[in-house]
């Protein structure tokens, strides 16, 4: 059956590509293959031979996937970097509001708060760096950017988990806490925790694929 060779080639390629931008790239390469097949047909080759020649010229799906991996990684790092840059200040603001509205806090929350703030001071520049590095031509290795952004993702996980744990303890033991703002901040942190966990896993996969 004509068309089978091309379809199989495109399926194999799609299986090797990351999800980001996969459909568009496969569609584009399918168009290119069509052009190539047509070119060979016009030189007198049979349909099957034209397809074979076009596939041969386009190269191994691995080679295309290897070339595309940094492109997908750059898009991913940019997207997650922006997500952390926007959620970070928002969640920080919600917690600060909750703390400001609370009359009295136990001493240990001040220590935990200080430690979390120190972590944020590491994580925030990492996110900013990732966004800046992936805007315009890359001047650093994309694998390094992914590593730096992973620091942000893991830190966000630690910060959110700790904040939620402290909040749960306080809700169980203290009566002075401003419940509504604190719960809002807690929910925001829980949401970001899901995003950060997904991001950390995705970035780990990307990093492994970049060798």
């Amino acid at each position: 059956m004509p068309g089978d060779l091309i379809t199989r080639y495109l399926d194999e390629l799609a299986a090797r590509l990351p999800r980001t931008g996969r459909a568009a790239l496969v569609a584009e390469i399918a168009g290119g293959l069509e052009d190539a097949v047509e070119h060979h047909r016009s030189t007198g080759l049979s349909e099957v031979d034209s397809q074979r020649a076009a596939i041969e010229e386009f190269g191994a799906p691995e080679a295309i996937a290897d070339e595309y991996a940094p492109v997908a990684a750059t898009a991913q790092a940019h997207r997650y970097g922006l997500a952390f840059m926007t959620t970070g200040p928002l969640i920080g603001g919600l917690w600060v509001t909750a703390i400001a509205l609370t009359a009295e806090l136990p001493e240990f929350t001040r220590i935990v708060g200080g430690l979390l703030l120190a972590l944020v001071l590491v994580a925030a520049p990492c996110a900013v760096f990732s966004v800046v590095a992936t805007s315009g031509p890359l001047r650093v290795r994309i694998r390094s950017v992914v590593t730096v952004l992973s620091v942000t993702a893991y830190t966000a996980i630690i910060v959110d988990l700790t904040a939620i744990a402290v909040l749960t303890t306080l809700l169980a033991t203290t009566t002075t806490i401003a419940v509504i703002p604190a719960v809002i901040a807690g929910v925001a942190s829980a949401t970001r925790l899901v995003m950060a966990t997904r991001g950390a896993l995705a970035l780990r996969g990307t990093r492994a694929a970049l060798v």
Partner: peptide
């Protein structure tokens, strides 16, 4: 070059 690699580039 392998033509397919031009697209990612």
């Amino acid at each position: 070059l392998p033509k397919g690699t031009i697209y990612p580039a």
